[in-house]
Design a binder for these strands. Sequence first.
DNA 1: GCCGATTTGTCCGTATGTATC
DNA 2: CGATACATACGGACAAATCGG
Lengths: 243, 243
Amino acid sequence: MPKAKYDFIYKDLKSRIENGEYEFQELLPSENHLVLTYGCSRNTVRRAVAALVTDGYVQTMQGKGVRNIFEPAQQTSFTLGGIESFKESALRNRQTPRTKVLCFTELTADEKISKKTGFPPGSQLYYLQRLHYLDDKALILNHNYFLKDIVPSLTPEIAENSIYEYLENTLRISIVTSKRVMTVEKMTQIDEKYLELGDYNCLAVVSSQTYNSDGIMFEYTQSRHRPDYFRFQDNATRRPASH
Amino acid sequence: MPKAKYDFIYKDLKSRIENGEYEFQELLPSENHLVLTYGCSRNTVRRAVAALVTDGYVQTMQGKGVRNIFEPAQQTSFTLGGIESFKESALRNRQTPRTKVLCFTELTADEKISKKTGFPPGSQLYYLQRLHYLDDKALILNHNYFLKDIVPSLTPEIAENSIYEYLENTLRISIVTSKRVMTVEKMTQIDEKYLELGDYNCLAVVSSQTYNSDGIMFEYTQSRHRPDYFRFQDNATRRPASH
DNA sequence: GCCGATTTGTCCGTATGTATC
DNA sequence: CGATACATACGGACAAATCGG
């Protein structure tokens, strides 16, 4: 249930586009028209449309209109922009997620871990290894580091369900920003043991640092993906700002 | 030289942050303060700040302020969000780019090519294979498909320099939107021949469809990256909209 | 716990510029 | 040239969150 008006308009337009209410390449109603149908100001409409642009759903053209460039094919993607937990993206794609906790320990960040994760040396951390299954196939091996100060009393039981649910619903931590880096790395013995890599000798690795609303980095995660099931989608726009 | 006021403020703040004018985790001047220093409305300031948020430079916190979360480390990244040509990102990282054209032909899209690229069957296309070097190391093998209707009189000479320069400066085509998909694929014989892959048997593949300002997809490109030099960076924010 | 000051978030109405047709 | 459509910018109002007294 969206509180904000622009968010309601955004969701409404988005679902209309997804449901094929506008043809591919068709123009949406003009901003002035949308102002009348939603009974709001033009700024609010523009904000909703801007969100659709960053989603890669539409394209705005000065003097012409707003064109629908959404193609249903992109729905099949596994990972989209934005921050999403494994469970969320699995359910979005109507698949059955399962998580197995391989390792659950506490540790103190030494120099090596600090350099790898970005936590200051001496930080008290939870360290987890988790294996994520989708429809009974082991697809992702996760290495999680959580700052104990921010995420207290984490348990293997919580880790087996969704840690993000625990963070948001129980601890009321609001996740705000996440920096992600995607690379390709050679497989390790652990990868080989748990993921069925077949002929592949390397995998897709997504490393991310997550910040809470106080600007504190409380999570470092390295997700190691089976390459044949990895797909990362992105919509880029060429801003005049980038020149 | 930016025309728009918000773009000037955006660039100004961005360079100040990059130059370390604000400490990591320090709060920027409040919006009202920025309104005074730049002599503009609050909306304009907010727009500039919003752009910094999507760049992952700052974090806004209601009731508190705007916090600098920029770390110089992220400058070393090769690929950032946004649309950037090989030459641009090379120069941004102060490296010497070089491009070798391996193949330059014209062809008509058959069923197979259509399915792969998204061009309708029967489209008249240029097909190029290009090898990109950075500091004399072969890093990227590109397969480019351009729609001849939109990109006429392409030559190997142009392809050896920057095609994007030709598109923007000569043909005056403004690139607007690009859909990208990142995957990991097994190497082919061509990859093996031109890229020094060492022990790796697969590589990072970025496929992208690029649209011009008329909403026409005029380019399909598959970039095959040497995995040890591939790095894709991204800043995600958890929008309330995504629930 | 309350109140007020500060700061960001949302929304409105209006005016003007620029591109398209 | 005029009508339409998006882009930029301004100023004002109120809400919501934070922080200090």
